[in-house]
């Protein structure tokens, strides 16, 4: 996907929320959906199971209007977190411009976090993208849970963020850290605007 199209004067920015199952990716999108004026958002597509687990993916189109003469659109996707949906994750990851990695701050979920992060790196690499050169933001969700159940953001950084991505503590249900993560991801993606880099 071409991020910026000078001929049609369009900017399309695809951001994927990645992370282990039940880490709160869909919650991020729901919160954003609730804060966006109706005129600015498209229909949120969410294919979920009866137990509220994302089966396929969530999709939230945002129309930011005309910015500097460019019609600017954001497309927010989530991937299904469960290990066995990898082909769906690969599909969703195609053409992405940036990733918000939503990690579960609970101590007992750290293996899932690491596995998912490795999976992200692997899937990006398969599409010829080096994660070190790619806009990624770390979001440590569920920081509202009791302190004895979770790791602090610093501990999460130590655990996951050895690449030094920007990171945010979050409580996606209440919206804390949600827009911060999105802003950070957007900023990084847009910095690469002129280069037109995205996953092929």
């Amino acid at each position: 996907m071409s991020l910026v199209n000078f001929t049609t004067r369009e900017i399309t920015c695809k951001i994927v929320y990645y992370g282990p199952g039940r880490s709160g990716k869909t919650s991020n999108l729901h919160y954003i959906y609730g804060r966006v004026p109706e005129s600015r958002r498209g229909r949120m597509v969410s294919l979920a199971t009866q137990t509220d687990r994302t089966l396929f993916f969530d999709f939230l189109p945002l129309d930011l209007g005309v910015i500097s003469g460019f019609t600017t659109r954001f497309q927010l996707y989530t991937v299904p977190g469960q290990a066995y949906y990898n082909s769906t994750r690969k599909l969703v990851l195609q053409g992405t411009d940036g990733v918000v990695f939503v990690a579960d701050s609970q101590a007992r979920r750290q293996d899932d976090n690491i596995e998912s992060l490795q999976n992200l790196q692997h899937n990006l690499l398969q599409q010829g993208v080096d994660i070190r050169q790619f806009p990624v933001v770390m979001q440590y969700n569920k920081q509202d849970l009791p302190q004895d159940l979770i790791l602090t953001t610093d501990e999460m950084d130590d655990m996951l963020n050895f690449r030094g991505f920007r990171s945010f503590g979050a409580d996606a249900l209440r919206g804390i850290g949600v827009f911060e993560s999105l802003k950070a991801a957007s900023e990084q993606v847009l910095k690469r605007l002129a280069a037109g880099s995205s996953v092929a």
């Binding site: 900017i11 954003i32 804060r35 966006v36 004026p37 600015r40 930011l64 209007g65 910015i67 500097s68 460019f70 600017t72 954001f74 827009f179 999105l182 802003k183 957007s186 900023e187 847009l190 910095k191 605007l193």
Partner: peptide, 12 residues
């Protein structure tokens, strides 16, 4: 969202 939009506008 307004704040997000403002930042994106500036970046763009």
């Amino acid at each position: 969202f307004g704040s997000f939009l403002a930042e994106v506008s500036l970046s763009v």
